[in-house]
Design a binder for these strands. Structure first.
Lengths: 227, 227
DNA sequence: CTTTTGTATGCTGTATGCAGCATTTTTGTT
DNA sequence: AACAAAAATGCTGCATACAGCATACAAAAG
């Protein structure tokens, strides 16, 4: 398996040459590898081997690892290198608790700021997600689900909130990736999403905030069994 | 001015030799320099010069910069190095909004979990802070103030919450550092702190949460003028 | 046979060297 | 004198080389 980083560097975005730096490319690549399980929790990130595998030198690789360490995806052990951080049940619960508070806040802010067009865009994504539910396309459903949550957070217009929510979502992605919920829970989740959209369209802060909170609380109950 | 990093590496903590790595030392050093204004917002972090000034080589320095970039204290501009991030009024407001939500959450959790001994420890710090208020020791007051907030967050027992709160507090420290509030506001802040401790001792979630929220909202109003 | 110590290997942590690109300055031309 | 073009300077970005520390294995002593 040749994991070498593709030559996507220096790609243009709208005429302007988007300069990409190698360490940033590596960060994204490693992040994906961790989320998708190519790098399991507890795996040591061997600088020599991993660097050779990706076709990059140790320096930018090390910079990328430090960046991910600050993000909380890897752990730095002095003189022993970096390992993919392993999350216990407690840590997952902690993250979900914070994520819940952040989505509740985002929901309130979104109700104040969202334009009709923006709400319509979410509604469209929501409808598409429902179609995936009806055709049992779990993968796409899951993806759109996350996207809707991110869109609501984005509506808050709060960059700090968006950033932190994104970081937490990334960390949890690997966990949820495994947590394939059963059909009974799935229907409930869809029902909650319907309520969510309705509350957002009515700009009902309290209701939206409450639904988002319950939604995550149930998500936790679903994954707690697999830990 | 010799800014060279002191030989604090490899200091012992309770018999066990605490191995320190250079990039981590540099991270802390740079963070302090940014907070205290030695590195003003917009300042370019020149690898050669800065490295020489600190007495370290470029590699660990660069790793430290990448780490701080992930923390949000510096900004990475391709081909132009790193600059100390400049926060606008909007961004500060965003951060305070999130910080408020975090402290409200922490307050609730703390009421559930705090032991009498832990509450007593906060009370002691609080009393010491009050003494600083009476003797007009602004600097020490300010320090203890932040410490109390951090202690309450720590009582939540939620590591994610503690981390994020710490990061935000660090980013805002530089701003608040400048925001020397007048005596009239100072008295109000002290009054709020008294209420805070009282609510915590009574384990009154809703009250503590509300006070913490108001407290930060006022803090924002105090600093908004200086931006 | 077990335990302890010494040695060897391999990895991380740090330093230095080289190439590419951006910026700035200088010189030539209009 | 002003503007443009070219060259030089200096910085970032990447790779490689070196040193220190941890671990593992082997050998010797109890």
């Amino acid at each position: 398996m040749d994991e070498a980083i593709p030559v996507e560097r220096q790609r243009s975005t709208g005429g302007r040459v988007q300069r990409t730096v190698l360490h940033e490319t590596i960060v994204n690549h490693l992040r994906d590898m961790i989320i998708e399980g190519d790098l399991a929790p507890g795996t040591r990130l061997h600088e020599g081997q991993l660097g050779e595998q990706l076709g990059v030198s140790r320096t930018p690789l090390r910079e990328a690892i430090k960046y991910l360490a600050s993000e909380g995806l890897v752990e730095l052990v002095p003189s022993r290198g970096a390992v993919v951080k392993r999350f216990g049940a407690r840590e997952v619960q902690d993250m979900l608790t914070v994520l819940q508070a952040m989505e509740e806040l985002a929901g309130r802010l979104a109700c104040d700021l969202a334009s009709d067009a923006q709400v319509a865009a979410i509604r469209a994504t929501h409808d598409e997600m429902i179609r995936c539910y009806e055709t049992k396309d779990r993968m796409q459903y899951y993806k759109l689900n996350q996207q809707i949550h991110s869109m609501i957070v984005a509506l808050s217009g709060n960059t700090t909130l968006i950033d932190i929510h994104g970081t937490l979502q990334t960390r949890l992605k690997r966990i949820r990736f495994v947590g394939h919920e059963g059909p009974e829970n799935w229907a409930a989740a869809v029902a909650e999403h319907n309520e969510m959209i309705a509350a957002l369209e009515l700009r009902d802060k309290d209701r939206l905030s409450k639904i988002l909170g319950c939604h995550l609380q149930k998500a936790w109950e679903r994954v707690r069994s697999i830990l």
